[in-house]
Amino acid sequence: MKKRFLAAVALILSTGVAHSADLYQPQPEPMMDAPEVTVQEASGWYLRGDAGYSFNRLRGAEFFQGSNDSLVDFDDTDLKDSFILGAGIGYQINNYLRTDLTFDYMGKSDFRGSTSGFCLNGVDTCTSSDRASMRAYSLMANVYVDLGTYSYFTPYVGAGFGASYVKWDKLRNRICDDPDVDGCYGSDHDGKGKWRATAAIMAGATIDVTCNLKADVGYRFRYIDGGDMFGFASGGGPGKDKGIYSHEARVGARYLFNGCDTPVAYEPAPEPIVYK
């Protein structure tokens, strides 16, 4: 009887252990080799358009005096401000570098100046009043360095070089202080036009509007080389200007053709913690 009881106990214990082994299931190993996220840098062609206001300054002007055929400076010169319009095509090389080719139009800017010399009697000194206006068309190659994106803003700096066609309108010269002549007299000089070397530096910020569209707010300093201003007429000429400085406040937009095809840069998920 005792032997039968012990055998039954042994059978029950062995069955319980077998069932416990069946219930235990080892946990699967965590998957450590998750696929990597490939981040593609922004690149591609874009179109741009700009508008702004240019604060202009003439570096001076000079002309040949008819009386003694000597080259002299204007006594004073002033070039008024003007609006600017621009358009261009460019290429975003990567997240930090881009380049474009732009065409800009500088609207009509009025010129005021004065000169002094002998009056018609050859004795007294007379002062002339000179009036003209100019326009400029610029073609420039530019390169920009983007300084990193902060939220929706990307500050940048840039530089450009090219040529500007400066077209001067007719210069009207008038003298009204000759004591021997009633009224005013003077002459009109034909305006000149010429292509000139041009350089610029820029700074500003790009603002992300959509994945394809970016707003641009910036400043540009532009230098246009000096050149022919007006031709010869009775009493003097020809004349030249010594160059133009412009400080430009600009706003614009750029449309990047494949901007929406660029994946968003995600950081990889942290590795899971395995408890043993």
Rank of each mutant, 00 (worst) to 15 (best):
M1A: 14
K3A: 15
R4K: 06
F5L: 15
A8D: 14
V9D: 08
L11S: 09
L13F: 12
L13M: 12
S14F: 03
A21G: 12
D22W: 08
L23Y: 14
P26M: 05
P28L: 04
P28H: 06
P28A: 04
P30Q: 09
P35W: 08
A42N: 03
L47D: 03
Y53Q: 00
Y53E: 00
R59F: 13
A61N: 08
F63G: 02
F64P: 01
N68I: 07
S70R: 07
V72Q: 13
V72S: 09
D73R: 14
K80S: 13
K80G: 10
D81A: 00
F83W: 01
L85N: 00
G88Q: 12
Y91C: 09
N94I: 10
T99D: 03
D100T: 09
F103T: 02
Y105S: 03
S109R: 00
R112W: 10
G113Y: 07
S114L: 03
T115F: 07
F118Q: 11
C119G: 15
N121T: 07
V123A: 13
C126N: 08
S129A: 14
R135M: 11
Y137F: 08
V143K: 04
Y144W: 13
V145N: 05
D146I: 11
F153L: 15
T154A: 02
P155H: 01
Y156S: 13
G158S: 07
G160Q: 03
G160A: 05
S164I: 06
S164D: 01
Y165I: 04
D169E: 14
D169I: 06
K170P: 06
L171F: 02
L171K: 10
R172Y: 06
N173S: 14
R174A: 08
R174V: 11
I175T: 03
C176Q: 12
D177S: 10
D177E: 10
P179V: 05
V181W: 05
D182R: 12
C184Y: 02
C184D: 05
G186A: 11
G186L: 07
S187N: 15
S187P: 00
D190N: 14
G193R: 02
W195D: 04
A200K: 07
A205D: 05
A205F: 07
A205Q: 03
T206D: 13
I207F: 15
I207D: 01
D208F: 02
D208K: 13
N212R: 11
A215T: 09
Y219F: 12
Y219M: 01
Y219L: 03
R220V: 02
F221C: 04
I224H: 00
F230G: 06
S234A: 12
S234V: 12
G236M: 08
G239S: 09
A249K: 04
R250H: 02
R254W: 05
C260F: 01
T262Q: 08
A265D: 15
P270M: 06
P270D: 06
